[in-house]
Design a protein around this nucleic acid. Structure first.
Lengths: 97, 97
DNA sequence: ATTTTAGTTCAATAGTAGTTTAACTACACA
DNA sequence: TGTGTAGTTAAACTACTATTGAACTAAAAT
């Protein structure tokens, strides 16, 4: 019997930790609903979090590979990383509504 | 604009917390692979965890609704709760292999 | 030039999570 | 009745996580 390595489990754990928080689920839902990129501050307002707290949550989501961020001058725009959802959680996003 | 309540998010957070651990992912994978119920101790051995630690992980998974447990004398048999996976994470289990 | 705007970083705090060891319950078997 | 088996529970410890407020960087607007 061969040992099976599951190298991607480390990524799975990161993803699940990132999603194991009501604020971050709300951020994902908000981004999913618009279907396009949004300014981080705009998302933070909708989800009713302080800017430093929002920054923390966006970093957690980004490090898990769940969102992508693009910087334009002083504003950061974010959107879902659909590839990650498709690979690790196919069918999940549609359960959010 | 009406406020949208997402009552199920509490359950989602529980589920993601439960899956945000490499041992528990391995337990889920093991249960999924056999496609039938297994004794908790057997799963614990395969995943190389002490019995008290295994008990802790099984409780976490059970409380998240991810596994079902049936007691037969001194042995507890466990299996995946496929309804929960289908409702909250459709398509996830097949990504584990 | 100075004031806003957008976001990051740091330190402090409080709460939560995972592991270990030891003591415990419940049942089976001989 | 005692012995082994299957699993739970509690305490102690370590480590991580979320939130807040204040200080910070960088760019825009006036």
């Amino acid at each position: 019997m061969t040992i099976e390595l599951h190298a991607e489990d480390e990524q799975r754990v990161k993803i699940f930790k990132a999603l194991a928080d009501p604020t971050r689920i709300e951020i994902i839902r908000t981004l999913c609903k618009t279907q396009k990129e949004m300014a981080c501050g705009e998302v933070g307002e909708i989800c009713a979090v302080s800017k430093s707290n929002a920054s923390y949550h966006f970093r957690t989501l980004r490090e898990a590979g769940l969102i992508k961020v693009r910087k334009d001058a002083q504003t950061k725009f974010t959107k879902l990383d659909e590839e990650t959802f498709e690979k690790y959680l196919p069918g999940f996003l549609k359960t959010l509504f």
